[in-house]
Design a protein around this nucleic acid. Structure first.
Lengths: 236, 236
DNA sequence: TGATCTTTTGTACGATAGTACAAATCACAT
DNA sequence: ATGTGATTTGTACTATCGTACAAAAGATCA
């Protein structure tokens, strides 16, 4: 039989599916995966719980779809920005451009998705903290390449810093980035209202400025290799 | 009747209560609050589920007890280290000492609790990401004082940096700290085995070094208030 | 020992979780 | 209009959740 996948195959009425995705993304990003029920999502999307099962089979499948929806555009955007940053001649400026290329897409929209950049990044932060299995797999196989590309680019701008130090510092960058999206109100509170933790532009500039300086810090290397500071091991 | 609170009042057999607390702390720190059931905790502690209810009334009460168990010692330790740090004469050295006074207690044991510092800090990180209500209240009313004290101390070492910037950067510090405890394996992975994300000593040194540099970065202030930096030109 | 208090156990209850599935409904080509 | 396949709805099943509570067990002291 000859199939004619004109409008039938391409999801004739994607409204509800999209609504469920959006509602789930928002609820997961705010409350985490475990605290949100399928019924919560359905209600927020104005749908029936059974409809979620129909479109995404399982709750995990829903999370998976959210990731697959964003990972592509965000990494594409990062690649473009990184490529542009690498063309900056001055080393100091290039470092800042690279950091900016890493930070900006996390705060802003991935592409056509309205303002979803910060929301999805917050989602990733929360899933990371929850140790979500689905997220862990996707992250490792989707973002590690990007992370390596950025680490390499930063290393090119700072040849005298060991790669190990750059890994640590970029790890700190991601942690700071995540935390800024997870608990923005704390910034407002601790600054006694002088700063707005929810202002993405401020967050980006502050983060870029601080991170560039952190990357430029002298290397730790072998000086005082911290043989056995009485620190206590983290795991038994 | 004259009471003789010799051994009865002081918890005659605290073994089980302590075992439940320890098990809960570990499970919460790893899997979050919502993903862990009372039955999980009881089983891990070798106790009966009803015993958890008996000692802590509710699951929230158990979390509350964990916080109250750690907050005192950890903040005390921080205060001591901070006081010592403030006495450092050289401004550069003092800044590093202050940062270290903030970081070290988060990674190491609060006091008598065996290796619980990193575990409890990780717990705080996860609760923060989950938006746990119980944790949020305690954190705000217990740690904000400490945070302000550190921010002030850092500001004293860096008088030319606006307080707002210092708040942002200390926020980044806490985010980096949290993330290092939540996802240490990522460091090992991205460094291709050259760094050990689970090594507390390395984490502390790297974090202190990077953070001191971040604090010392020039102020953002009003220079170029981020109208619309041409972050990128590529659109392809 | 027997009385009394603390702790542990076992069990059960109501609520809610994820998911399955049949019936109802819808959109559209014929 | 009607048949057809894609959705949506309603409902139900099982599992597990937090918690309550009575009974059993253990400990302490007159």
């Amino acid at each position: 039989m000859v199939r004619k996948p004109t409008s039938k195959e391409t999801a004739r009425k994607p409204n509800m599916r999209e609504a469920i995705l959006a509602a789930a993304e928002e609820l997961f990003a705010i409350n985490g995966f475990n605290a949100v029920s399928v019924r919560d999502i359905a209600q927020a999307a104005g749908a029936n719980p059974g409809s979620v099962t129909y479109h995404f089979k399982t709750k995990d499948g829903l999370l998976l779809e959210i990731y697959q929806r964003h990972c592509g555009p965000m990494n594409l955007r990062r690649s473009e920005l990184l490529a542009a940053a690498k063309r900056v001649r001055d080393l100091q400026d290039r470092l800042e451009a690279v950091v900016r290329a890493y930070v900006v897409p996390a705060f802003t929209s991935g592409s056509d998705l309205a303002g979803g950049g910060a929301r999805f990044t917050r989602l990733r932060a929360v899933m990371s903290a929850e140790g979500n299995e689905v997220a862990r797999k996707i992250i490792a196989q989707t973002f590690d390449d990007t992370s390596h590309a950025f680490i390499d680019a930063i290393h090119d701008s700072l040849p005298h810093i060991p790669r190990t130090d750059i890994v640590w510092r970029s790890h700190f960058l991601l942690g700071a980035l995540y935390y800024s999206l997870v608990t923005p109100d704390r910034v407002s509170r601790l600054s006694r209202g002088e700063a707005d933790g929810n202002d993405a532009a401020s967050a980006i500039e502050q983060l870029v400025q601080a991170t560039v300086a952190a990357f430029q810090a002298p290397a730790l290397d072998q000086a005082a290799p911290v043989k056995r500071r009485p620190v206590v091991s983290s795991k038994t």
